[in-house]
Write a protein that binds this DNA or RNA. Structure first.
Lengths: 213, 213
DNA sequence: TGCAAGTAAGTATGCGCTTACTTACCACAC
DNA sequence: GTGTGGTAAGTAAGCGCATACTTACTTGCA
């Protein structure tokens, strides 16, 4: 097999294993066996185990699903369609993490283990969406469409609802947590509803909000 | 040192180490050294490393801070004071995880590693609060104080906002994420505001919500 | 003096990584 | 076509060290 093909194949199985068992919990021998080669081959393509781990980032960079979300989001933002912006974001996040549970696990594992991969994933994928969304909220506040709420608070709140739902489904629904019997489409609708209701509720506790700013 | 004292001391240092480096990443020798005893002592008090890990649960059960939150929450619920219920919950969660970062790390590590400790933490601490809160929301919907929203969606959304803020501060603010320069008290206020506004907004997209139920 | 608390020094296994070696491929003179 | 030499893909075996856990022994207090 050609060098580049082998390299990609090793990365592919490494993503699976690292995401399931973490950096420390995955052995180079295991990766080699899953790739069907001798362990020494791993070290011909990657100087160290850690280099192999960080090389995962490049593969994750250009996922189709992520790009689809980015463009769907941009389209809705340009149109100024609040409902579409938040519903699409929620839907894509729910779908993405349902189909691919490697990303979330890799992020959590490397954040806990203090590996630089966590920072790379955060910088390259998450922080950009956060900033874009905060910009959008800020603009809509300026438009008078949203209440005067700190955009960072709003974004963190909304993303939090969705991510929590993802993690709940992934890790805790089997532990006796209350199940949410909704499709991702329905869940996205509900959370977007919840969020937009709070952003546009000019009657609730109005003085208090005003006074803060 | 008496057996029980030694046992407790070992557990204490084990909590710190396991939460920092996970089950796989922590060695029994390391725990022994941190406790200032020979490695063999560990195995006199706990049959296996795994038994030591799950024994952590007992220590975590009766934390003062958790009990304070439970009673503060109950008091506010009995009084039917919506703002207090959600603001206090948010504040206590933020404070708890700021002062003690072992709980969150242990939960995440063991959820990822598939250890039963995750299920124990979830069952004993998290799921109870979720259910209580969902009950409260359900009651307030029946009162006509809240919109007719699925209580599980509402609770998961609110807890999600708070937990996301905790994790963001813990892991990602150093990675170039936008900082939220608020005290825990202020953040709790903002998130509770956000949530309550959405629960009481009878004017926004009313038909749509109605139609769903 | 008896017994629990504590230790030094193991064992078998598995880890990341290296070394010494063998095979497969492929352009090119003849 | 056919030998030939250089290069890269691949392997078996093993190095030094760390792991979870054990055993045989020593201390100190009721």
């Amino acid at each position: 097999m050609a060098a580049e093909d082998r390299r990609q194949q090793i990365l592919e199985v490494a993503v699976q294993l690292f995401s399931q068992k973490g950096f420390r919990g995955t052995t180079t021998k295991e990766i080699a066996m899953a790739a069907g080669v001798n362990e020494a081959i791993i070290f011909r393509h990657f100087a160290t185990k850690s280099e192999l781990y960080t090389a995962i980032m490049d593969r994750k960079a250009c996922s189709d699903e992520v790009q689809a979300m980015q463009s769907a989001l941009k389209e809705a933002m340009d149109a100024g369609d609040d409902r579409q912006v938040f519903e699409r974001l929620a839907f894509h996040m729910l779908e993405f993490h349902e189909h691919d549970d490697t990303a979330m696990r890799l992020l959590l594992y490397s954040a806990l283990e203090g590996h630089e991969l966590a920072e790379m994933i955060f910088r390259n994928h998450i922080s950009k969406t956060h900033r874009q969304l905060a910009e959008y909220v800020k603009r809509r506040v300026a438009d008078g469409a949203f209440r005067r709420i700190d955009p960072v608070v709003a974004v963190r709140g909304f993303i939090g609802m969705i991510i929590n739902q993802v993690m709940y489904k992934k890790f805790f629904e089997r532990c006796g947590g209350q199940p949410l019997n909704l499709t991702n489409r329905q869940a996205a609708e509900r959370f977007a509803d919840l969020f937009l209701a709070s952003m546009t509720n000019h009657s609730y506790d109005h003085q208090r909000i005003r006074r803060k700013h």
